[in-house]
Amino acid sequence: MPDATLRIFRGDANGGATADYRVPVGPGMVVLDALHYIQGHGAADLAVRWNCKAGKCGSCSAEVNGKPRLTCKTRMDSLPLEEPITVVPLKAFPVIKDLVTDVSWNYKVNRKIPPFQPRPGVEWKYSQEDADRVQEFRKCIECFLCQDVCHVLREHRLHEQFGGPRFFVRVAGLEMHPLDGADRTALLKDELRISLCNITKCCTEVCPEEIRITDNAIIPLKERVVDRYYDPLVRIARAIFGSGKG
């Protein structure tokens, strides 16, 4: 097999530039293998995150030829090897060094979300169908590729106002838990600002776990917010009967 050239961003918060590295390509090789090869042959200080090398931990995210990808699941033979393969860090987050970005913002957003709260006196029983609905959201490996591709964060940099698709997925997993009794609609409306999402579906397209982020998480959550805050009948009913979960 031919050699490949990887054109990798080298630098830190103060800036940097891409550098080219030649890598021999073997069968089944993935981009992360190529990065490890480079570390072992000449660039020992190349900064890369990874853990499982099997698409399970969501550590190895980067932009490969302009697309947000898990480098451990991106096969070299799926890329055009005649041209240099560009590997740069996620754009939605500040660079620390090389391919490593500062994703701590995500952990801060997560803290705002009220945890699972079982309804009082529940019996711990529910069907597999009920479980399936929530398990889709709980598959999330926190790779933050969806955050990276969402224009609200990537272009408009509204990190201070917006939660991002990852956290709509997380809230959906809690809100649709068959035994949960908490209400997170105010949070969705005011703190995570779900209304800023205009359903472009870019997040769904990049999710390596194939979570239907927009259709199954965001749209139903938007409906909950609308029902709660903007539907006049619901508002009247709430005034009369008190608030309950939508």
Binding site: Y126, Q135, R138
Partner: peptide
Amino acid sequence: RELEQWGAIFDRTEDGRIL
């Protein structure tokens, strides 16, 4: 059981318990 009470969702048996 504690994990379940903290929000974990396990696969279920026919009668709705942890499989």
